[in-house]
Simulated assay, not measured.
Amino acid sequence: MENRNRFPHPLFYLFPLYAIGLYFLVLGVINAYVFLAPISIAALMTMILLPVVRKFENWKINRFLSTFLATCLALSLYLSMFVVISLQANSIYENWDTVSGRVQNTVQKVQESISGISGVSPDKQLEILNIPPSALSSDSTNAVNSQKSEKDSTSKKGETKESTAKQNSGVKAAITNFLDFVGYSLLTFIYIFFFLFYRTKIRLSIVRFFPENQRDKTNKILNGSLSIAKQYLVGRLILIFFLWIIYSVGMAVSGIDSPILISLIAAALSLIPYVGTVIGYVIAMMMAVVSGGETGQYIGVSITYGLAQFVETYILEPFVVGDKVDLNPLVTIIVVVLGGLVWGVVGMVISIPLFGMLKILADQVTVLKPLGYFLGQDDMGSKDDDFLGAIAKKLKRMFK
């Protein structure tokens, strides 16, 4: 009788409310991407540029000029990277006929190999995939067009108008997307300037949300969050630079077209843990197909990636990045996937430092300490039995 009259646990009522609140919070974050994404990127860039601004201020340069110089430096690096990518993309566009011819030859070789193994003819393979034969050969398209009679001229004009309208709409969409990209980029750098210039006021505003008896803990959380995000991001940028060099040398030796651009994309994708490496490797193998599809090129790309991953994991990352973000691999994969679902590539990039700062907060708040334990690497097992880990330790001793 006593058990029947007992009231349910408060969590019984609160859990549905928490679930509904979390759902609408995530939905709001997704819909506010246009507003929040530039602010989030600007906040992370501010942490990277903060030591630069302080260095300028130590040289007796006033805050406004120091902030302006640091923002201009970041903008210059951004524009330089944009110019490099544009030049490489223009080179690919100018040689597109050669590239498309190589792709067609590679596809024909693959079709012949499949035909030799399975006995399915190339035409039958295209029929199974629902691909018209004219899609793989411009010559066949021209032959078909030349055989059409004059009675189809009216339909030709209609098709021409329709294709022209589609091209115009595509050009308009491309221009609109480019202008949006430029606008978001400029807005991001404006945010960076003001975040750097008013950093003291922003910090004090955050501190004042908490009682005075907890100011020390609040400052500790803020300092830890800023430090972990700054060190992780700066380390990652240095790592990207070294990976760019390794990839560029390997791709050039392997005979891959546009090695600088492909290497830069592959190195930048390392910002996305695990997933970025796989995507970069797939892009490099596709470029090997475009560049001729020789066996030596595939082997060269694979060796380059294998060597780069070994150097990154066991030499560069321990020294350059280290364990700046104390997240275990399971949590890392989960937050990267969630970031991609919410904000795409931007979400993947900022999810790691964001959850690293969340772990700093969880470690300092008693109620959230179980969450901090789950996010961290405590009790993850020893790496002493790992052969590559032993090699990394020996390399560390050599460099000390």
Rank of each mutant, 00 (worst) to 15 (best):
A19R: 09
V171I: 13
D139I: 09
L129Q: 06
P8A: 08
K172S: 15
T46Q: 10
D216I: 14
N130Y: 08
K393Q: 12
K201W: 06
E127H: 10
T154M: 12
L395W: 12
Y314T: 06
A268G: 01
F374P: 08
I391P: 05
F68W: 03
S248H: 04
F56T: 04
Y18Q: 11
K157E: 13
A42P: 02
S254V: 04
S270H: 07
K383Y: 12
E112S: 14
L17R: 05
N130T: 08
G356N: 01
K359I: 02
A229D: 02
G389I: 02
E162R: 12
L25K: 06
A266N: 00
L14S: 13
I206E: 10
L239Y: 01
Q214A: 15
L395H: 05
Y13H: 10
L196C: 04
T332Y: 03
N5S: 15
L44N: 12
V282W: 07
F355Y: 05
G293N: 04
L354A: 13
I61W: 04
M380L: 13
G158R: 11
Y23S: 13
E162W: 11
Y191E: 06
A173H: 12
I114S: 04
G21P: 06
K124M: 15
G347S: 09
S270F: 02
V182D: 07
T141K: 10
V120N: 03
A42H: 08
N213D: 12
A390C: 13
A229M: 10
E57A: 05
F355H: 00
L11T: 07
Y305S: 01
T295G: 12
G293E: 04
D326E: 15
D180Y: 12
N328I: 04
S76K: 05
I391C: 06
S118V: 12
L79V: 13
I303H: 00
P318K: 03
I352H: 00
G344D: 07
K394W: 07
P8S: 11
A390F: 06
Y373F: 14
A362E: 02
G344T: 08
P38T: 04
V99W: 08
L14T: 08
L239E: 00
